[in-house]
Amino acid sequence: MEPINIESTPKTPSIKFIQEESVIEIKGRSIPENSIEFYKPLVDWLEEYARDPLKKTVVNIQLEYFNTSSSKCILDVFKKLEAIHKSKHDVAINWYYEEDDEDMLEAGEDYESIIRIPFKMIEIVD
């Protein structure tokens, strides 16, 4: 299938699928007013991907900011990944946060407590 590739904007993150590394990467800011519209292509892509996923999928999330409207869409993305994980395919989420950004760490922990996929919290140190 076509790998997803969305460029970042000041209000939305970049989204990439790097097939040779089995990595999905979401990076930047996610603060659009209409997050459903922004995340729909990713949610649709994951639905398609879930039909025949790689043996292992690594998801790197590196967000500087996200708004509460995005937070629900990100949960939808995680739920799609959870379904892949349940179908006996490896899924791992790396949640990156900047040094000392306790709010972002906590946000990752919120998701970790809701979603049954292994999370790794990774602090980015300058």
Binding site: N34, I36, T68, S69, S71, K72
Partner: peptide, 29 residues
């Protein structure tokens, strides 16, 4: 934190795009 997680996990986004999380998030942050 519990209230935030509950709303996040149980409430749908409204047509307006708000999710009822804004004020809770503001208070948390």
């Amino acid at each position: 934190k519990d209230m935030y997680k509950f709303i996040l996990n149980h409430q749908k986004l409204s047509a307006k795009g708000g999710g009822g999380l804004g004020l809770v998030d503001i208070a948390r942050k």
